[in-house]
Nucleic acid binder design. Structure first.
Lengths: 338, 338
DNA sequence: ATGAAAGCGCTAACAA
DNA sequence: TTGTTAGCGCTTTCAT
């Protein structure tokens, strides 16, 4: 059974394909003609072939999003926000997940390219542009990256104010009397991790303090668990606060502390970065720095749409502010704030 | 700057487009020709147009996945598993997220259809097939649904053994002495929720028990929180266990109990269904029934691939077994099992 | 207002 | 072995 095309509809309606095309595209035709054609189309269950349309038009009308790990709740929230922003603009969004594998990231870019998405939102695995991206750039493929280290010709960047957020967080910890602050940083090359560390170090310095202890994680729950174990594993902890470079690690650290019988925040305060919905589900709930997915998403979409309009635009970088969310893991009374 | 096509490569290499096409497709040509052509292609930065290829071939070589909520960690894990399974088979997978809105679900199906994915994995918002699906089915669009209520012509179904899993869970609770078991069920029309309730009710009956109390949720964390509040809100709880239809609700219930100062599992045991990675991050970690994403994913892919091979296959339903995961929320000693 | 025809970029059947 | 050509299904001049 062959697919139904414009031709079939035209035959049934007794007109030419161009007339059918016009009717379907809303271009004026003789009265009565429209209904007749639409009728035939409906009778045949006609569905336009988007491939042919896109091939003809030279664009697909959909955007792509590539994320490294769909199981990371914050990335899932960012994806949701982008999806929603695109929906409001009447644009389709398709998602690809690279599972944290650089090679798979290339494959996903190829897949999106193959489907000729008009532009790509890129959250990358590493702090280094995928090799194939420079080829694409040559072909004017608009890309918005969520990592400043990608900034380059034809690539716009949206990022949270990681440095400022981290500073605000440290100021908070100091204000509640913490002086021995340990850090769980990220060993991945991602700019977000680097900037957060810079922010923390900087703020500590301003308070005349230094990082009490350091653990290098990888943004995962497991590494947060390991980090806390490293800090408090042997005897009474010499630290009174742990700052993790993201919430996943903070939640891991929190769990280790709680399971070890420590009081949080009494013995040790714990804070993360991102603010995912699950971050307020812990007991105590997690103090964190929120990087708002909606804000990032709308900024990213604006960037992409404007570049779609004018490919000659210079590379731009937009920085979105963060918000400190004080909750139970640093402030006993604030246990249930959203 | 025009896009580079086969024609341009052909011109540069001084051959015809078909020769270029052959070289790129690995079809034997005269020695030396291949390198020369490949060279030209590389020099021009040629990238094949997947749209044209797919249009020509009548298929895109990629599959689609439509999920209702990317922020649901279990769905994210299912998506990962499908992605991985497809990757191993050398097939591309693109994802769409309907954000739990039925209208958006239709739009996503349209989007996937527009991109002419060769088949679709569908996790639906409701226990009712999207209207547009029946149109597609007419056009031989292979669909694998993760909900038995979608079973129909041209639609295969993969599901976990929800009834069996729920029964095993109740047997466990009874074996540890619980007799007053409350249920947080799901009010959505999804078959999974219905089946789990059937399994629980059935197992209770076999033990000569009945549901001690019931709350109707919606598979969300918030509704789990509300459910537990409903059960234990007023005075001492008359129940000694809570079974939720999924982990998200169980985690909500767990948090409410812990925050209320109850001992878990001492005062009340809590169990869920699904087994997401975050389910073992709670304190105590959550007893649950695992429906394995890998198992479901490989079964679903098998179904889809076989139907791609032979569209005439009758509708099939595959049921995958579940595994009881006993952890700290029902069994104090089991706190850290994976 | 409508139809014929060119062509988007590619592959495959057919010729040479 | 290689080139020519006819479409895949659609939109869009260009004639009519």
């Amino acid at each position: 059974m062959a697919r139904i095309g414009l031709k079939d509809v035209a035959a049934l309606a007794g007109v030419s394909v161009s007339t059918v095309s016009r009717v379907l595209r809303g271009i004026p035709v003789k009265d009565g003609m429209a209904v007749q054609v639409r009728d035939a189309a409906h009778k045949l269950g006609y569905q336009p072939n988007g491939l042919a349309q896109a091939l003809r038009a030279g664009k697909s009308g959909t955007l792509g999003l590539l994320i490294p790990d769909i199981s990371n709740p914050w990335l899932a929230e960012l994806a949701s926000a982008l999806e929603e922003a695109c929906r409001l603009s009447g644009i389709g969004l398709i998602l690809c997940n690279s599972g944290n594998r650089p090679d798979q990231e290339e494959m996903c870019l190829d897949l999106l390219w193959k489907h000729r998405v008009d532009g790509v939102f890129l959250v990358s695995v590493r702090g280094q542009a995928p090799a194939s991206l420079s080829e694409r750039a040559r072909a004017d493929w608009p890309v918005v990256a969520f990592d400043r280290s990608y900034a380059g010709p034809g690539i716009d960047v949206v990022m949270a104010d990681n440095v400022g957020g981290a500073q605000a967080l440290v100021n908070h910890l100091v204000s509640i009397g913490r002086r021995n602050i340990a850090q769980i940083v990220s060993g991945t090359g991602l700019a977000a991790g680097i900037d957060r560390r810079v922010g923390v170090d900087d703020a500590l310095r301003r308070h005349g303090l230094r990082t009490a202890d350091l653990y290098v994680g990888d943004f995962s729950y497991a590494s947060g668990l390991a980090g806390a174990e490293h800090f408090i594993g042997r005897g009474a902890p010499a630290i009174d606060a742990i700052v993790a470079a993201n919430d996943l690690m903070a939640i891991g650290a929190l769990r280790h502390c709680v399971e070890s019988g420590l009081e949080v925040p009494g013995d040790v305060a714990i804070a993360g970065f991102d603010d995912m919905s699950i971050s307020s589900w812990t007991s105590p709930s997690l103090t964190t720095v929120r990087q708002d997915p909606e804000l990032l998403a709308t900024a990213a979409l604006d960037l992409l749409l404007s570049r779609l309009d004018d490919a000659g635009l210079p590379p731009r970088t937009v920085t979105v502010p963060c918000t400190l969310k004080v909750r139970g893991s640093t402030h006993p009374g604030a246990s249930d704030q959203p």
